[in-house]
């Protein structure tokens, strides 16, 4: 899951990235993703992991780093089962 997400973000990123993105890197504050990139990432996550990101869940706490995203998705997928 983590690898897939990192790969997608690297494709999306508007910035020149020298090193690969780390799971703990701040995606929002660092400029790796802009606000439209974020919207695209959310659409990707919904499709790839068959879940629905609710408007209320579009918060910094869920999307700050790849680690935050995977934690959040895992909780969602557990809830679904």
């Amino acid at each position: 899951m983590q690898e897939k997400i990192i790969k997608y973000i690297e494709e999306l990123s508007s910035e020149e990235i020298d090193e690969s993105i780390e799971a703990t890197e701040d995606l929002l504050g660092s400029g790796i993703l802009d606000s439209l990139g974020m919207m695209k990432l959310i659409a990707f996550l919904e499709e790839e992991f068959c879940c629905k990101v609710l408007p209320e869940e579009m918060v910094i706490e869920n999307f700050m780093t790849v680690l935050h995203i995977t934690d959040y998705l895992e909780t969602k997928l557990v809830e679904k089962q």
């Binding site: 929002l28 606000s35 408007p55 999307f63």
Partner: peptide, 10 residues
């Protein structure tokens, strides 16, 4: 903050 500009709910 830059993070807030990217997350509508925040």
């Amino acid at each position: 903050s830059d993070s807030h500009t990217k997350m509508p709910a925040s």
